[in-house]
Write a protein that binds this DNA or RNA. Structure first.
Length: 113
DNA sequence: TGGTTGACGACAT
DNA sequence: CATGTCGCCAACC
């Protein structure tokens, strides 16, 4: 199984309203330092893959050769109920797997400035 | 075989 | 916080 396909299979499992970082995907696949390769793979992802649920380590939407997709990604995320603060996904509230909703309630003081 | 290319990430400035 | 640098990696040529 090529690395690319493994990435596709994993991304396909990300629940609606949740996001995962390139680095997490790489780590989950047993290659903690292949985050960059993950991004490269997503650039060739099938149209039905929920690629918009993948963001960078800071919760931001990474730049790409064709900027068009960036807007699409932001819109799709918002439509799923993913909250963005100053252009970034609040990872503490939507990161997957684990502790998304819990943090979203404010229990972990993510946005309690 | 060896070099290039990105939807990355950790750090230093 | 906003850049710039550098290391890393799979896929392609």
């Amino acid at each position: 199984m090529s690395f690319r396909v493994e990435v596709f299979r994993l991304v396909a499992r990300i629940p609606r309203g949740r996001v995962v970082t390139y680095g997490q995907i790489a780590a989950l696949l047993g290659r903690p330092r292949a985050a960059r390769a993950v991004g490269r793979a997503l650039g060739r992802a099938p149209g039905d893959l929920p690629w918009h649920r993948v963001v960078n380590a800071r919760g931001g939407i990474s730049r790409r050769s064709r900027p068009s997709g960036m807007l699409t990604q932001r819109i799709r995320l918002e439509q799923e109920g993913v909250t963005l603060r100053r252009g970034r996904v609040v990872l503490g509230a939507h990161a997957w797997p684990g502790r998304g909703r819990l943090a979203a309630r404010g229990g972990l003081g993510c946005d309690s400035h």
